[in-house]
Design a protein around this nucleic acid. Sequence first.
RNA 1: GGACGGGUGGCCGAGUGGCUAAUGGCAGCAGACUGUAAAUCUGCCGCCCCUUGCGGGCUACGGAGGUUCGAAUCCUCCCCCGUCCA
Length: 378
Amino acid sequence: MARFEVVAECGATRARAGLLHTAHGTIETPVFMPVGTQATVKGLTQRDLAEELDVRILLANTYHLFLRPGHDLIRRMGGLHRFMSWPRAILTDSGGYQVFSLSDLRKIEDAGVTFQSHLDGDRHVFTPESTVDVQMALGSDVMMVLDECPEYPVSHEYARASMERTVRWARSAFAHYRGRLAKDGTGTQSLFPIVQGSMFADLRRGCAEQLVELDAEGYAIGGLSVGEPRPLSFEMVEATEPFLPRERPHYAMGVGMAEELAEYVARGVDMMDCVLPSRNARNGYLFTSQGRLIIKHTRYKEDPRPIDENCGCYTCRNYSRAYLRHLYQAGEMLYAVLATRHNLRRYLDIMREIRQAILLGQFPKYLKTVRAVPVEVE
RNA sequence: GGACGGGUGGCCGAGUGGCUAAUGGCAGCAGACUGUAAAUCUGCCGCCCCUUGCGGGCUACGGAGGUUCGAAUCCUCCCCCGUCCA
């Protein structure tokens, strides 16, 4: 069970610092969770993640692991932690995001979602109950309910119907989850429901109020960063978070850019995850304390400096922009490894800075400095 | 000296009378990426002009002539490269 403990609160914003206790360790919040969809964070070893970056919790994906290698296989291999040799905490997404990202390959019905596998075209049905079962087989510390993550934009009418379905699914998932807990004895896994409602404040609030009745150990805000203008994303958190229990962790799913992390925290978010630091690393977009750095730009061709002179990561301690640019242009895999290490380190450093600022009562000041950072380095 | 083959935009390489400023690939330049179908995708990529639209002008397929309404594509000569034979 994930027990949340608030350690400090910001007087001026909704930010707070906390501790999330799980069966696989305690996590300091606010926390950024690297995404390891297929039981791996692309480009990094578990040793990199644990020893160098001190990652305490990772994401993995139910849909992807269900298709390959299969949750039963993972269960037989001793569960996801042992299978991927990651003794720390794991949060599994339910596959709700794939309802959005694989929209051409799925059909939504009240009972659940029918997916056509992107791997071989096989059809599979995901239900609120089955996704709980799969995640219980995986053994993740935090499980997510199956939800519908609608694209943007969508009509109020559709958003409402979709949100209501997501609420029904959450109820079904919880009923099934609690039934299994009662039958199987003590459980170590938590289940978080997900607030939807597209970009409509009334729907967000309505959804949150209904989900709170489930008395979950944590609550997620989903359906963000699906193509909407950035300000809307923040507005939707503002429209949702006040209706979530303050004593439970709040998880904003799938966000955000490095410069946005503190903004979400200021709006009461305790947990975030995003593919950007890892994916953008591979695609040449590096995050620095002085703004973004596009490594392929010709101005870095003979630049002897590290990506970020203020960064203490292995990459920045040892390699120049010129070398990284060369690796990138040459398509060398080491580039992805080094870049991912850096970007993830940057994200984790930001979260540590945020937490420290909150603990010291200086979060508003920190927020101000973050907002003053230019978009691009130099 | 002779016989073949070949010289195309930064490179490789299509194209063998008009739809060709010229397919592709690479390189180059820029952009996108947000609970990962992504080490992916998109745009630009001869020069100049009009803020403009499938717009206009110039230069260009080794060189120089020629045939033709029209040539990178056909003809003539020349130059250069490769292979082979003397």
